[in-house]
Design a protein around this nucleic acid. Sequence first.
DNA 1: CACTGATCTGACCGATCGGTCAGCTGCTGA
DNA 2: TCAGCAGCTGACCGATCGGTCAGATCAGTG
Lengths: 182, 182
Amino acid sequence: MARTTPQTHGEILAAAARRFGVTGYRGTSLQDIAGEVGCSKAAVLYHFANKEAILTELMAPAIEVLRSLDERIAAQSEPASAQRVAIEGFVDLAVRFRGEIALLRGEFPELLQQPDFAHIQLISERLLDALAARSARASARIAAFALLAGIAETCGEFADVPDEELREALLTLLRRALEPVN
Amino acid sequence: MARTTPQTHGEILAAAARRFGVTGYRGTSLQDIAGEVGCSKAAVLYHFANKEAILTELMAPAIEVLRSLDERIAAQSEPASAQRVAIEGFVDLAVRFRGEIALLRGEFPELLQQPDFAHIQLISERLLDALAARSARASARIAAFALLAGIAETCGEFADVPDEELREALLTLLRRALEPVN
DNA sequence: CACTGATCTGACCGATCGGTCAGCTGCTGA
DNA sequence: TCAGCAGCTGACCGATCGGTCAGATCAGTG
């Protein structure tokens, strides 16, 4: 065996992505990943501090984009413009990283509890706020929540739909569904 | 100890519902449930064949209503009327059983794989079909999927919102978001 | 009193999990 | 030639899981 470090590192990441996509994060053991790579479980833990570190590295690009979207939203002073930026940015994020998001299918709630992802919770709340056009009305927040959660669950399901078509469908859905700013 | 059977049986169900609501199905052990009831894990398994049986009994009423909704939808010959029945029936179901649905927060995908809930998968697909007004267009199916998944995740989150208000918010969302039948 | 059946317990089982550790291997540079 | 180090392995650890089982407890019955 004995490959170079970046090589094995990348192979483990790729294998983990594949397995997480099929059986989810919790449903995938380090042994599963090792088996797919063709090395021992101990080798996986030689390249990564622990299981969570694999997920963290896998999600890092998506999280970075989410963080920058959060900043762009915060920079908007008007609810209407914040909503517009949130809609377009979120759809863009969902489509671009739909593979990564699909990995977490149904595991968002638990994963957001982990310390490594704690700040994501805050960002999600601000995103929700922007989608609801900063309204405090229950109906606005309920709709925004349903769309946020729904799209997160959705974008990984339609792997055969081209990016542009998925993008248009989600944009149309959000624009039609969200209460207009008054 | 030594209570009557229906008494302990009910206490276990109630305790399981409470724990599932906090830590999810997979995140709750039989020991957790037993601890909450104040009996041994073996006592829990004396009253229920296995862990899944507890969940099955807990979800039975909701599943029964879902089944009858499925039949009512199937009885509609026109896509438009099927969509209308699906919208109203699904919102009604989501609001009425939001406690039960909240128990499964984020665990739908895995649970639907289990043999006991296999038929739910089929019903969900027919419900999706009706919400999409039996259209094969990707945009219609994407929107229906996002709303279905989103509302399922949502209804348990707003526990402080009264039934009627939640009902109206979800109805408005669905009617506005779903593509009109042409 | 003896017996029975329902209820419940503690001890235990095998499997699986994430993670640790001592040590083997093969390349590299002095 | 050989020390040293990066990469990797197999054996092992403690914890936890769902589930089993022999037997204790106790109320009701003849």
